[in-house]
Design a protein around this nucleic acid. Structure first.
Lengths: 194, 194
DNA sequence: CTGATAATAGTACGACCGTTCGTGCTGTCA
DNA sequence: TGACAGCACGAACGGTCGTACTATTATCAG
């Protein structure tokens, strides 16, 4: 990796941290330059547009999520154990990876009514995650752990609702019991899927 | 209502619509002036600061939520019927009230890591809503509709998770089945509370 | 070591930000 | 009629935004 790529990676890392704290809109070239100790123009040259920078940040977040949550889960046994691994590491490792918590939840509200490449990329990422969950649940059916008539899409919806609520209650309202609540809810979801 | 109050109300109405679409950060004095056909300075004079404008918008949202969701529900019988009324009108009436959907979900992500009066007010509003839900569920226990050992805080958490997921899946991912999923989930929550 | 090239800095730009100020309407009341 | 308050206006402020150009410095193959 040449010097340029190295610097670019460092910028994106810093940017991701900023985004998780202040959101995509307030990720500013000037602020990012200050945080990295670079000049605005020197930093800007790596991306050529703010939109490109935003996309790179989202791509980095996606990569990290796969690395932190998905890859370790794939080493677990197929089915329920894998689902449980995804859930647990999403809550514990992924939400703590960045200072502002799950970056996808942080940006999804500000992109949901603002068409463009950034929104498209986020939606595609979320859909891919939903597919992964769906497939994992399907496997759990094949393995005989989940009942055969389980509604897979409903399962994915309810799974997603838990992490959304965890982010909302834990981060905005500061409820220290949010993690326990989310855990309870997930166990209930699993029990109903048997 | 004097001319001033009338104009101010019209501005706040317009601002609320803007916020639900673009978020609190992008609610700009200039854009709002354009949308209302006023000059920046004339509009600004009504609030004296942007922070005040934001607070007025949040207050308006809170008032409308009470008017649209809470007040009608209070006319329903105590307990489960009331909870059902709150849920149904939150989904159908409240989410459709503004073009960008539930304004609380729209702004909570951008305020959760940004201390200040706006965040404080939002948190207080959400806590008040949570208390209302908690109380309604408590009544359902007293009425013998819910089981006596129901965990009230867990109930509120799960209730909130449904609307959060509805907003997320329906608005960002554009899932047309989100309403049905949310409905299913709510019925499940009620069934488990009996 | 040198010359090409990549990486960064410097400077400037037009647009828009929140905010202030002075001014001119318009209607009320003495 | 004259004084006055309420309301809205245009102009302008200092700042920051994203972005474009140009100059300087660092890197690295030959």
């Amino acid at each position: 990796m040449g010097k340029g790529e190295e610097t670019k990676q460092a910028i994106v890392d810093e940017a991701l941290e900023l985004v998780s704290k202040v959101g995509l809109e307030k990720l500013t070239i000037g602020a990012l330059a200050g945080a990295t100790g670079m000049s605005k123009s020197g930093l800007f040259a790596h991306f050529r547009s703010k939109e490109q920078l935003q996309l790179q940040v989202l791509a980095e977040a996606r990569e990290r999520f796969i690395e932190i949550v998905i890859v370790p889960a794939l080493k677990k046994p197929r089915g329920e154990a894998r689902l449980r691994a995804i859930f647990e590491s999403t809550l514990k490792r992924w939400e703590d990876e960045l200072p502002g918590g799950c970056v996808f939840h942080a940006v999804s509200a500000e992109l949901d009514d603002q068409p463009g490449p950034a929104r498209d990329y986020l939606v595609e990422t979320q859909r891919a995650l939903a597919d992964t969950l769906r497939r994992a649940a399907e496997i759990a059916i094949e393995e005989g752990q989940f009942r055969k008539d389980l509604d897979l899409d409903q399962f994915v919806f309810e799974f997603g609702s838990i992490t959304a609520a965890y982010h909302h209650f834990g981060r905005l309202l500061g409820d220290p019991a949010a993690e326990q609540r989310a855990h309870n809810m997930f166990e209930g979801l699993l029990a109903r899927s048997h």
